[in-house]
Every structure is written in structure tokens, then in C-alpha cells.
Simulated assay, not measured.
Amino acid sequence: MSESIGIYIHIPFCKSKCPYCDFFSGRASETDYDNYMRILKEKIKYWSGQTDKNVATVYFGGGTPSVLGADRLSDVLYSVKDCFTVEPEAEITVEVNPDTGKTLDFEKLRLAGFNRVSVGFQTAVERELKALGRIHTAKDALVTTQRAKAAGIDNVSLDLMMGIPYQDIDSLKESIDFCAKCGVKHISSYLLKIEEGTRFFDIQDQLDLADDDKQAQLYLFAVDYLDKLGYKQYEISNFAIPGYESRHNSAYWKCGEYIGIGPSAHSFLNGRRFCYGRDLKAFEENIIIQDGEGGDEEEYIMLSLRLKSGLVFGEFEKRYQHRLSPLQMKKIGNFARAGFMELDSKRACFTPKGFLVSNAVISELLV
């Protein structure tokens, strides 16, 4: 197992709930924020007693962490640093909504130790933003990235959604050009997924959604165009200027260990996977749901193949003391001949076309 771990802090609050969002989050009062802070710091202290490993990455996600404001976010990070041994060069990320980002005190966040900002942008096109129920404008996103960089946080990421209502190649290009104009180092570009329990799930028949063919067209365009702009794909939905790949998320895909703190947050520690339920009271009472063992061969193959670097045979053999089966290698060869994978003596990885059907391919490899 790795020498260091990551920490994920879940902030389950938003100013408004987006109709496509399935994450555990909702509106709350300032009093609710303060009460959650108290619980969060109690749990940070508890989990610090469960491991003596150094912390290499900290990630504040949600919800919308930025609704808490810089003082509360800094307070939580100071608590993490007080309780854990956080490495001097640790990557410390906070997710920010452009609506709150345009007034957030990024200078205070930087002084507390935050050195990476992930902005929930989605699209630069006003009609598409309204269709997604977003409460910000493209200008808000630009102002947020500018303010973060002016405060000394140069490592900024933008979320970019594909397959959303009314979107076509031209509007997607407009959004990608906007990201490049902002000068960000990282772009998470992912396809809209309709999740059960969301408003979009209930009204999906009324939405102008992209079918599978259009989704594929948008995705393949984005991969190619982002590459031309210098954003290299390193994971199925993530692109970065070389050297600015997300270390926190990359650790997930490499079966690294992490502790998730907050309702709905998942953990992988000491070979076990477990989580908190989607319930604030259960989180306060520290009720933990066991998910069983983690890091087995199937999981390693599945997660490795999310990465553009793919499944490295030598690393697999070192970890599990044997090679992939002849049948698995034969299947990989078949997928490579069909154009879905690339294969050489050292590794197997998906092509952009292969990423679009990766779930089906991985399922076949694991049979």
C-alpha cells in the first residue's frame, strides 16, 4: 500500500440544487454551516487517530464548498493540518461555484494552504447554462479564475459538460475556447449523465438531450480540440497542461488510499472500502457503512483503464505476482484490432473511441 493518503472533505451545501445533480447536497442556513463545521472538525480528529500515514492531497468537494466562505474553509483546513501530518508539497483543492467565487477571499485561502481551485463552470453559453439551472454567468467564471490567479493560486481547473440541452459542436468549441482564454491549467470535460432521483430524470422526455451518436461526436471533438490547445488527456474525462494533472483524483484511479469525511463520502483505508450514508445525522453519529475489501485485481484493472496511461503490465505483475491471463490478453488484442484500445509490450490503454464504450469493454475483460 502507498506511504501517503488523500483526504476528501464533503461540504453538502449549495445555494440552489441543479436539476441534473445527484450528489448529496442542499440549501442550509448560516447556523447549519456552523453546526456542520463543529461536526466536521470532530470527525477530522477521529480519523487522524485511525492512521499514521502522511497526507499528500486534500480535496474539498460538494455540494458547493465555497458557500462556506474563506474563513470557514480555512478553519477546516487548519484542523486537518493540526490533526494529520500534511506533506509540505501537498495538493490542496477546493471546489468553487462562479457565483460565490466572484467574491470569495482567495488570498485568505492561499495563506491557509489551498493551492488548487476547481471551478464548476459547465458551459460558456447562456442558453445552455439556463437549461442546466446554473445560477452564474460565463463572466462570473472568468472573474473567479482571474481572482484566484491574482491571489497566487495558479493551478485552476474548469468543469466543462458535454451532451447538455441545445449544445452542438460550435457551442462546445465556444466553451472550450473560453476555458483556454481563462488560462486554466486543467479541464474536466465529461458527458451529462441523467441520474435517477434528479429533476432531469423526471423530465428527461421533455429535454433536448444528445443521443449516443451526438454524445460520441461531441466527446471526440473535445478530445481532439483540447489536445490542439495543449490540454493533454490523462483520464477518460480529464485534460491538463502537462504537470498539472489532479494528484488527488489520480490517486483514486491508481488504487491509492484515502479518507472521505462527510455524509456520502467514501474511503479506502487498510485494504477496506467503507463510506458514510447520505444522512447528516448518521454522519454526526459516525455510522459507517462497510463496502468490503478494495484493491483487488478486477478493481485495479477497471481503475487503471480509466487513465490514458492505461494498464501497465509490469505494475500489475508486481502488485499481484502474476500476469494477466492468456484469455484477457487475447481479448485486449481483439479490442486493439477493432480500434478501441492501443496495445504494446508494456501496456494496454483505451483510444478516445474506446473510452466511449469503456464500461462494456472492461466488463468483457473481467469476465
Rank of each mutant, 00 (worst) to 15 (best):
I5A: 13
Y8Q: 06
I11Q: 03
P12N: 11
P12V: 08
S16C: 03
S16N: 14
P19G: 09
Y20S: 11
Y20M: 11
F23D: 08
F23W: 12
R38T: 14
L40G: 03
E42T: 13
Q50E: 14
K53A: 02
N54A: 14
V55C: 05
Y59R: 04
Y59V: 01
D71L: 09
D71N: 13
R72C: 03
L73Q: 13
L77A: 11
V80F: 09
K81R: 15
F84C: 11
E87A: 13
P88R: 15
E95Y: 12
V96G: 02
P98V: 00
P98K: 01
D99G: 09
T103A: 01
L104Y: 01
L104V: 00
L104S: 03
R110Q: 06
R116T: 10
R116F: 05
G120R: 07
E126W: 02
L129Y: 02
K130G: 03
L132Q: 09
A138C: 06
A141F: 00
T144C: 01
A148C: 10
A150R: 15
L158A: 06
M162K: 09
I169H: 10
I169F: 02
D170L: 01
D177P: 09
D177E: 12
A180S: 14
S188M: 08
G197K: 15
R199K: 14
R199I: 11
F200W: 12
Q204F: 09
L207C: 14
D208C: 15
K214H: 14
Y225G: 04
K228T: 08
K232G: 00
I236A: 10
F239R: 13
P242C: 06
R247A: 12
H248F: 07
S250A: 08
Y252R: 02
K254W: 05
G256P: 07
G262V: 07
A265K: 06
H266Q: 04
H266K: 04
H266N: 11
F268K: 07
C275M: 08
C275E: 02
G277C: 03
L280W: 00
I287P: 04
Y300W: 14
Y300M: 08
I301R: 07
M302W: 05
L303P: 04
K308I: 05
L311E: 09
E315M: 04
E317I: 07
E317H: 02
K318I: 06
Q321R: 03
R323P: 00
L324E: 03
S325T: 13
L327K: 15
M329D: 02
D344K: 11
D344A: 02
K346D: 15
P352V: 10
F355W: 08
I362H: 01
